[in-house]
Write a protein that binds this DNA or RNA. Structure first.
Length: 455
RNA sequence: UCCCCGGUAGCUCAAUUGGUAGAGCGGGCGGCUGUUAACCGCUAGGUUGUAGGUUCGAGUCCUACCCGGGGAGCCA
């Protein structure tokens, strides 16, 4: 029986059986000895208080020696709790110790640990309040993502992890090879050519969108960038919808609806976990999410955003200038100081965006859009794709790319081409925003970053 | 990769101008008539990240390296 159900669905007086890990133990040894054991099984944030007395045959031999981390199975009766901290508790008829936990060596103590320390104990940190809550929120968000797309007629697509295509501009790649170190003859390699871990499923998703209409991917992505920040991982999860017969405005509409849906979902379904984050991690996180769900996102062109930045009376480390990238300090100014909500920036200069984005009529900008949120910065990057064969080829050539390498991608424009658009959402960055956590290494179970692939 | 800050007990941290390394929590033992990260008493626990150097003397100063955090770049 899950503790989640015991605490919400089971009437007082019911015989229950729960299995979980001991969080804390309080023993009283006076004239009226008894023990309070709080147990968590991960099914919900709350613990269940178990009351054990010396009438248990193993009370002296086992129960009083329980410590944090022990695994137990408890049979007993659910009763109203006379104590103040919890409405109900279990009066134990049986406490079976499944696994002992040496308290001298067990790293997880019933106290506050630093996240830095817990990262070195990534196999045990899910037993803490914070990491249990993150795991449940992450799972609920994953389901919400599928619900959102499936209910709108999107087909869930699995794009390859090993690829030969280079989604230009998406960063450094991890080589996949069976060659011995030093060998450079790719014809002798496993695939007979140079292969990498994917940096994006977009190009393949476009192929399926140009057949099935609406598709989305949700899977791992790999970047070999030497990025050492609280917002970057070498292995992270990305959601990439792609829609045929769709322009940039439709794309931005989808992104806005999508974010609102997943935040709304965790506010509704992860109330207890969210209240924990709000109390201990970020005292404004619930209010911020509610604002996002209720408010309209700001939408403005890159050109207009540059005007706002230029008019701002402040010393920029990177002075804003048309044609240059929007820097982190600019993003924060827009999302945190100017609007204090998500901002969608559209129509970036072609010179700073990749080849596949559709060239606008002005010839200088492309139909790109980034969704920026307070604190985290960019969580979505997307665009309308260039569907005109001649424009796409000349764009590739001017960037020094060989169109022959992208023959199948160009076929999509040769045979029944169609306006289409899509975006990529960084899943972990979205969890950061949703939980108020500040380091991306704490919202994925086993993070991979430069010089760190333990566990 | 660059800039800044840090590394002391199992964990979280303290240690004056360079002068005998401490506390809280956790652990062990004892006490406590229902507790809430319980409380009270006693107790064990350290090659101060690594390797050099300066000094009568280094946790403290210098050099190099390793690891971590924050910021930047790259991006999601």
């Amino acid at each position: 029986m899950l503790i989640k159900d015991v605490l919400t669905n089971v009437p007082i007086g019911t015989a229950v059986e729960v299995a979980g890990w001991v969080r804390t133990v309080r023993n009283h040894k006076g004239k009226n000895p008894l023990s309070f054991i709080t147990v968590n099984d991960g099914s919900c944030f709350s613990t269940l208080q178990v009351v054990a007395t010396p009438t248990l045959p193993n009370y002296e031999t086992e129960v009083v020696h329980l410590t944090t981390g022990c695994s137990i199975i408890v049979k007993g009766k659910l009763v109203e709790s006379p104590g103040a901290g919890q409405p109900v508790e279990v009066q134990a008829d049986e406490v079976h110790v499944v696994g002992w936990c040496d308290p001298e060596n067990y790293p997880i103590q019933p106290k506050r640990h630093s996240f830095e320390f817990l990262r070195t104990q990534a196999h045990l940190r899910p037993r803490t309040n914070t990491f249990g809550a993150i795991a449940r929120v992450r799972s609920t968000m994953s389901l919400a993502i599928h619900e959102f797309f499936q209910s709108r007629g999107f087909i869930y697509l699995h794009t390859p992890i090993i690829t030969t295509s280079d989604c230009e501009g998406a960063g450094q790649m991890f080589r996949v090879t069976t060659l011995e170190p030093g060998q450079e003859d790719f014809e002798k390699d496993f695939f007979g050519c140079k292969t990498n871990l994917t940096v994006s499923g977009q190009l393949e998703a476009e192929a399926y969108a140009c057949a099935l209409g609406r598709v989305y991917t949700f899977g791992p992505t790999f970047r070999a960038e030497n990025s050492n920040t609280p917002r970057h991982l070498a292995e992270f999860w990305m959601v990439e919808p792609e829609m045929a017969f769709c322009d940039l405005t439709d794309d931005a509409d989808l992104a806005e609806e999508f974010l609102k849906y997943i935040f709304q979902t965790i506010l509704e379904r992860c109330r207890e976990d969210m209240e924990f984050f709000n109390k201990w991690i970020d005292e404004n996180v619930i209010e911020r999410l509610e604002n996002v769900v209720q408010s309209e996102f700001v939408r403005m062109s890159y050109t207009d955003a540059m005007e706002i930045l230029k008019k701002a009376n402040r010393d920029w480390q990177f002075p804003p200038e048309w044609g240059k990238d929007i820097q982190t300090e600019h993003e924060r100014f827009l999302t945190e100081e100017t609007f204090n909500k998500p901002v969608i920036i559209t129509d970036y200069p072609a010179s700073i965006k990749p080849f596949y984005m559709r060239v606008n009529d002005d010839g200088k900008t492309v139909a790109a859009m980034d969704v920026l949120v307070p604190k985290i910065g960019e969580i979505i990057g997307g665009s309308q794709r260039e569907e005109r064969l001649d424009v796409l080829i000349s764009r590739m050539e001017s960037l020094g790319m060989n169109p022959d390498d992208y023959w199948w991608y160009l076929d999509l424009r040769r045979y029944g081409t169609v306006p289409h658009a899509g975006f990529g959402l960084g899943f972990e960055r979205t969890i950061l925003f949703a939980t108020g956590m500040s380091n991306i290494r704490d919202v994925i179970p086993f993070p991979r970053t430069p010089r760190w692939a333990e566990f």
